[in-house]
Simulated scan of single mutants.
Amino acid sequence: MSESGADTRARRYFWVIKHGVKASGMPTWGAGHDDERIWNMVAFIDRLSELSPQQYQILTARGDQETGHH
């Protein structure tokens, strides 16, 4: 995908994560997460298809003391 295509896709992902999609079950995350956190989610989604199962496990593992969304 071209640089501008990747940028367009990233901006679209950012908007959907931040604002949600009405009547689709995709909630808005903007109220609970700042823009930097949402851009980190976009970067994760962008790399998701490249991750091995082991890499995914490492990146998504939580410590025993962690609860809720971070």
Results as ranks from 00 to 15, higher is better:
E3V: 12
G5I: 07
A6W: 04
D7T: 14
T8W: 05
R9H: 03
A10V: 09
F14E: 00
F14H: 01
F14W: 06
F14C: 05
I17C: 13
I17Y: 12
V21W: 01
K22T: 06
A23F: 08
S24A: 04
S24R: 02
G25N: 02
G25T: 01
G25R: 03
M26S: 06
T28D: 10
T28H: 08
W29N: 00
G30E: 06
H33I: 02
H33F: 13
D35S: 03
E36H: 08
I38R: 08
M41Y: 02
V42H: 07
V42D: 13
D46K: 14
R47S: 11
R47K: 15
L48N: 13
L48V: 05
L48P: 01
L51I: 02
L51T: 01
L51F: 09
L51S: 03
P53R: 12
P53G: 09
P53W: 12
Q54L: 11
Q54R: 15
Q54C: 08
Q54Y: 08
Q55W: 00
Q55A: 06
Y56G: 04
Y56C: 07
Y56I: 01
L59Q: 07
L59N: 01
A61S: 15
G63V: 09
D64G: 02
D64L: 12
E66H: 05
E66R: 01
E66Y: 01
T67R: 05
T67M: 08
G68L: 00
H69Y: 11
H70T: 05
H70V: 14
H70I: 09
